[in-house]
């Protein structure tokens, strides 16, 4: 991919379609979509909506029936698929570590195929283990069955990052992990993404996970209809249709509180001159986290960026621009 032109768009899908032989309907209806460099996009929808098929068409594990796939400014619809996949990270729910290879060898697989020398690969393995929070000395020589589910998926992520691909495809990577470990992995993964700034396409059926992780979310309805493709905030405050509204479920306004930051909301809320001890917060903190602290510490006033705002004004300013299409 060295001959690619630097471009804002990392993935461009043009009318990509999948129909299996002897079936009456498309598994994926013609879909066009553009994903920007460094963007974290989540495909979410009920099972059978074609989101995984769509993901697997990006690295051509499933060959599209029609349409074009552009990655990093290059049409890869008909290039060598193995070569293509070596430059795209791939993480799946079942992890799929090679059980007969040590952690280090699992991570080395792609660098090996790309012809890296041993020393460079070994250094990269240690670097990646550190990156995903596994101590290299402890874990390098272990076999997959000696790891917990969460540790296995950390190795899975490290393996996908091995050759430093600009793009990662992740198919429900945290779906098989228990809720507590999943929450921690999500947080760590977000922090990791802050540092490495990959373009990520992430599939899940869990709308909460989508809202938490995605810069933008593509909500698919039955029959592979793309119902809405927008930021979590837009989706929560302006759901495109009934399907989206029912999919994000009941408490959209409450959920919005974890998507908006106190900085932007405090700007819209009126200042107060009521006396009393205020809780101070950073502007980039989500409203939900700050409210939680205010409730537990029994403060009615928030101070952010030198402005004092009442809790109730903060609340209504957070969800004020929300509208339900009637």
């Amino acid at each position: 991919m060295s001959d690619s032109v630097a471009t804002e768009s990392m993935i461009r899908l043009v009318e990509v379609t999948k129909r299996y032989p002897n079936t009456p309907a498309d598994a994926v209806r013609p879909l066009s979509m553009e994903i920007r460099r460094g963007e974290f996009v989540v495909f979410v929808g009920p099972s059978g909506c074609g989101k995984t098929t769509m993901l697997r068409m990006i690295n051509r594990l499933i060959e599209p029936t029609a349409g074009q796939i552009w990655i990093d400014g290059r049409d890869v619809t008909h290039t060598d698929p193995d070569e293509l996949r070596r430059h795209i990270g791939y993480v799946i729910q079942q992890v799929g570590l090679m059980p007969h290879m040590s952690v280090a060898r699992n991570i080395s697989l792609v660098p090996e195929m790309l012809g890296w020398d041993k020393r460079r690969t070994a250094a990269r393995v240690d670097e990646l283990l550190d990156l995903v929070g596994l101590e290299p000395g402890t874990f390098r020589a272990r076999y997959p069955k000696q790891l917990s589910g969460g540790q296995q998926q950390r190795v899975g992520v490290a393996r996908a990052l091995a050759a430093d691909p600009p793009l990662m495809l992740m198919d429900e990577p945290f779906g098989a992990i228990d809720p507590i470990a999943r929450d921690r992995l999500q947080d760590e993964f977000l922090a990791l993404q802050e540092r490495i700034r990959k373009t990520i396409v992430f599939v899940t059926h869990d709308i909460d996970e989508a809202l938490k992780l995605g810069d933008r979310i593509a909500i698919f309805a039955e029959g592979s209809r793309l119902a809405q493709f927008d930021t979590p905030r837009e989706i929560l405050s302006r759901p495109a249709d009934d399907f989206v509204r029912s999919f994000i479920g009941e408490r959209a306004a409450i959920r919005l509180l974890s998507v908006v930051t106190v900085g932007e909301v405090a700007g819209r809320a009126p200042a107060t001159d009521r006396p009393g001890e205020a809780l101070s917060a950073q502007p980039e903190e989500p409203v939900s986290a700050v409210l939680d602290r205010m409730l537990t510490q029994n403060r009615q006033i928030l101070e952010v960026g030198g402005k004092r705002v009442l809790a109730q004004d903060l609340l209504f300013a957070s969800t004020g621009d929300r509208q339900d299409p009637a």
């Binding site: 698929p81 193995d82 070596r86 430059h87 799929g96 059980p99 697989l109 195929m113 899975g156």
Partner: peptide, 12 residues
């Protein structure tokens, strides 16, 4: 899953 992962990382 092991085969899927292997193919997904570009093994021939």
């Amino acid at each position: 899953a092991v085969i899927d992962a292997a193919r997904g990382m570009g093994m021939s």
